[in-house]
């Protein structure tokens, strides 16, 4: 019984962390689908967003004002990226665009540190990192309130994005653009508008992810590497599949925590750092298009 409870505890903790991975991976998918750009700068955007948020608060702007201000800033960064980095490179190869986003990552990292300094900050969202009392009392499972709130916020974002994709007019436009730029343009879908929207949305996703992770681990440069956590999620879920990366995020989150607890001791611990990549490699061998990744439709 105690074993089962412990298992559940680890599983829930893993799933909650997994939703966060899903969220970050969705930022990638959004941009990749709409413009075939692998956005290397996603991690830098996370860092830039949350550091700016903390910076605004340090200037004396209260929490609830700093949030919309940072959202506006990230929308602006997204639109500026589309305008200054991607638009001039229209029709270039995917490799060229990837290089451009690597450049963008350095610019954002540099700018964030230039504007706000390099020291590690604390971000207090006012959510206690203590076990949920009633859950602990009734079932004996210890799950942090903070993890639950973070998981719920991330889940809400993920659901909102999934609905944006599948149910709205803009979402249809986005899927059309993802399917073929020229065809989308020929029926009057304004590509630039869609791209701006996608980058602005990715900016907001970056802010939310940065706040949740920053509050837990400190607002620091290491957030840049958070984006690397999204890579196995993308490989497992498929680069173009919204439901795929949501589920893959959960799988990665749960499996890395379970692996750490149950297999870790045999390897001397620390395997959650690399076990997702092992999983990703296994997927690459047996299901390279990912869980739900669309196979290319070749029939013409």
């Amino acid at each position: 019984m105690a074993d089962l409870l412990f298992f559940l505890e680890v599983l829930i903790g893993g799933l909650l962390a997994g939703v966060m991975y899903s969220l970050i991976a969705l930022g990638f998918v959004l941009i990749y689908k709409a413009s075939s750009v692998f956005n290397f700068a996603q991690g830098a955007m996370v860092f830039f967003a949350v550091l700016s948020f903390v910076g605004f608060m340090e200037l004396g702007i209260p929490f609830w004002a700093a949030l919309p201000v940072t959202v506006v800033l990230m929308i602006f960064v997204g639109m500026a990226t589309e305008r200054m980095v991607l638009r001039p490179l229209v029709n270039q190869s995917e490799e060229t665009l990837l290089m451009a986003t690597i450049g963008l990552a350095f610019v954002l990292e540099g700018m964030a540190q230039f504007l706000w300094g390099v020291e590690v900050r604390r971000l207090d969202l006012g959510i206690p990192d203590v076990p949920m009392a009633w859950l602990a009392d009734t079932t004996g499972i210890f799950v942090s309130v903070f993890d639950v709130v973070a998981g719920v916020v991330a889940a809400i974002m993920v659901i909102a994005l999934a609905l944006l994709f599948s149910k709205t007019k803009v979402g249809l436009g986005l899927r059309a653009v993802a399917d073929g730029h020229a065809a989308a343009m020929s029926i009057g879908i304004p590509l630039k508008q869609i791209w701006m929207l996608v980058w602005a949305t990715a900016g907001i996703v970056a802010l939310v992810a940065g706040m949740l992770w920053g509050a837990r681990n400190g607002v620091q440069f290491a957030l840049v590497w958070l984006a690397l956590k999204a890579l196995p999620v993308l490989i497992i879920g498929g680069f173009t599949s919204v439901p795929g990366v949501i589920i893959a995020g959960l799988i990665v989150g749960a499996s890395e925590k379970l692996a750490e607890v149950y297999i870790g001791p045999y390897f001397g611990g620390g395997i959650e750092l690399w076990s997702p990549y092992v999983l990703a490699v296994i997927f690459l061998m047996f299901r390279p298009e990912g869980l739900f990744g669309e196979k290319h439709i070749r029939r013409v």
Partner: peptide
């Protein structure tokens, strides 16, 4: 356009709906 560029991953009806985007 030449080569009947449909949105292959969208249904026929979604293709039509996209046509009314403007």
């Amino acid at each position: 356009m030449e080569g009947r560029m449909c949105f292959g991953h969208l249904t026929v009806e979604e293709n039509l709906i996209a046509g009314a985007y403007t």
